[in-house]
C-alpha cells in the first residue's frame, strides 16, 4: 500500500511524508548526556537504602506481629485497649522503646518504599519532585509528632 493510498481521517488528516506525525515516544529515554553516565559525585545512598529495607523488614516483622498480638489477641483482645492500658504500657521504658523503634522503622521503611514507587512511576521531573516533597513532609511530621507523644505522654492528663 503506497502511503498516498491511506485515507486520512480525524486528528491524522494533517500528516503526510513531508509533515510526519510525532513518534510514539518512550518515557525518559537514556541519552549520552544522561546524568550518571559520566562524572557526577557517586554516593552509596541507594545501596544503604536497599540494605535498610531488608534489615528493617526483618525487625518490623517481629515488632509488628508482637504489637498486633498484644493489642488485639492476647488477654481479652481489642476490648481491653483503653487510655489506662496505653498509660500502663508507656510507664515502662521497654514498651516506650518498642513503640519508638516501631514508629521510626515503619515510617522510614514505608517512606523509602513510596520513594521508589514515585521514582518508578512519576514520569515528569516536576511531578516526581513535588510528590517526594509531600512524602518527606508527611514522614517528618508523623515521626516527630509520634516521638513527641511517646516522650511527653502524661498519664494524668485531664
Amino acid at each position: 500500500m503506497a502511503t498516498s493510498d491511506i485515507e486520512l481521517t480525524g486528528s491524522s488528516a494533517a500528516y503526510s511524508p513531508d509533515n510526519p506525525a510525532p513518534l510514539i515516544e518512550a518515557p525518559r529515554a537514556r541519552t549520552p548526556r544522561t546524568a550518571g553516565s559520566t562524572g557526577r559525585s557517586r554516593t552509596n545512598f541507594e545501596l544503604y537504602g536497599w540494605v535498610f529495607m531488608r534489615l528493617s523488614g526483618i525487625v518490623l516483622a517481629v515488632l509488628v506481629v508482637g504489637h498486633l498480638l498484644i493489642q488485639l489477641v492476647l488477654d481479652g483482645g481489642v476490648s481491653k485497649v483503653s487510655f489506662a492500658f496505653v498509660a500502663g504500657r508507656w510507664a515502662s521504658p521497654f514498651w516506650q522503646g518498642w513503640d519508638l523503634l516501631m514508629l521510626w522503622l515503619a515510617m522510614l521503611h514505608g517512606a523509602n518504599g513510596l520513594r521508589t514507587v514515585i521514582n518508578d512511576y512519576a514520569e515528569r521531573d516536576g511531578t516526581r519532585f513535588w510528590l517526594k516533597m509531600l512524602l518527606y513532609a508527611a514522614t517528618v511530621f508523623t515521626v516527630l509528632l509520634g516521638t513527641l507523644v511517646i516522650f511527653t505522654f502524661d498519664p494524668n492528663i485531664r
Binding site: T3, I6, L8, S11, S12, Y15, P17, A21, P22, L23
Partner: peptide, 10 residues
C-alpha cells in the same frame, strides 16, 4: 501498525 507519515496513532 504505526506509520508516522500517515497517522499519529498506531
Amino acid at each position: 501498525r504505526f506509520n508516522p507519515e500517515a497517522a499519529a496513532e498506531s
